[in-house]
Design a binder for these strands. Structure first.
Lengths: 221, 221
DNA sequence: ATGCCGTGTTAGAGTTGTCTAACAAAAGAA
DNA sequence: TTCTTTTGTTAGACAACTCTAACACGGCAT
């Protein structure tokens, strides 16, 4: 049985190792993500190593053992199921779900998660478009392209967000955009790589390259 | 913000002080309920006293402050709402809900609880028949009589259980009884105060006085 | 190769909560 | 009242974290 803190470290470690820059998973990165000091992260790495969740020897980069990876995937499963529940059933806005799911994911009960999954109709994606692992840890791969790479004239549907920060989600909200929104790329401005978009409500908006690099889309033909 | 442990102590203290033998709320009782040693309960009482949740001076019985009582009622609200959710929506048996609710009740989010309440249709009673406090801490009083006091010939409906131990709930289950079950008292055996009952399934059963003292019922006329 | 600087590690202390063991107070019995 | 038993309290230690401060390693530039 893992403590809440051990679970938190494990999950962050998984995300650091799985995200593109898989080499950025050092003591400092870990500490920064968890908002603790490097010394704390270091001693937790030792503890997770003793519990066979992480392979770690000092001054080297940690990696997850198969057990560690499987455990992390279950945590991600719980987190995303709870997010889906909060969004679909309890009227939470999609930028409010994360914080509460962060607490709910630590509740220990196999049956709870399996029944929650059933209750929600075995969803494949959470409200941010991230795939939900099944009980075996398998998850769908999201079909995606970055909005930044779409040519003018192309119609697309939003399938996910790379960034789930509140600021980003709020901005999306303000634009009237959400998961599954459809939009049309009108123009690509070469000077700063910003885009002009036709929004669902009929209005147009201009968004920065940075924005467009954080939105995943599917081409509609 | 209270820790999980502080919340647990507070809740047990409330139940000890509110249950009939309100004087049985000493250090030892508290420790026994929480499965810790008296020394631990003692130091927690001091901490709760510093936080103005409990009035306590050494060698005297602790009592809850108004703040402590209000806080405990919110915990009970959360617990009973989660029990109701697990029972109604997630197919949990009523003797399985307690343990998981015990974890869920510590999740901190006003909105979560208010939305859960709405989602469940503002239930007044949990699956054991215990009343659910509202956001202000008010709760319905259950109309009840003990099954042990019902005269033969009287038809009654089960409205609650005094004991929520797994053993007791399992026994009820085995008899085919649950909250809202209706039954008829057939005979009262004076020798040991046991009762013969007509059960919903048409069968009869004989139950001990001890059993009958743990079931709350409403007379049906 | 040498030195520097960022990354990583250790030692030692604080907090929350647990325990055991010893002691003090209150309550009940004689 | 006095003795005994129960109940409650304290001191000191340990575990799971956290931190600060000091130190070790390793990569990079000169």
């Amino acid at each position: 049985m893992l403590s809440k803190n051990e679970e938190d470290y494990l999950k962050v470690l998984f995300h650091l190792l799985t995200g593109e820059g898989g080499d950025r998973a050092g003591t400092n990165q870990l500490a920064q993500q968890l908002e603790v000091k490097p010394a704390s992260a270091n001693s937790m790495l030792k503890r997770l190593s003793e519990k066979k969740l992480v392979e770690y020897q000092k001054y080297s980069k940690p990696i997850l053992t198969p057990l560690g990876r499987a455990t992390a995937l279950q945590l991600i499963r719980r987190h995303r199921l709870w997010e889906t529940f909060l969004f679909q059933k309890l009227n939470f806005a999609w930028d409010e779900v994360h914080e509460v799911a962060e607490q709910l994911e630590h509740v220990q009960s196999e049956k709870l998660i399996e029944q929650l999954d059933r209750f929600l109709g075995y969803p494949k994606f959470d409200p941010h478009g991230d795939p939900i692992p099944d009980a075996q840890g398998n998850m769908a791969v999201r079909e995606y392209e970055l909005l930044a790479n779409i040519a003018p004239g192309q119609r697309v549907r939003i399938t996910g967000m790379k960034d789930s920060s509140t600021a980003f989600l709020q901005y999306l909200n303000d634009l009237g955009l959400a998961l599954h929104s459809e939009l049309l790329v009108l123009e690509h401005i070469p000077f700063d790589n910003s885009l002009r978009l036709a929004l669902p409500d009929g209005l147009t908006a201009q968004v920065s390259e940075k924005f467009a690099l954080h939105v995943f889309v599917l081409r509609l033909d």
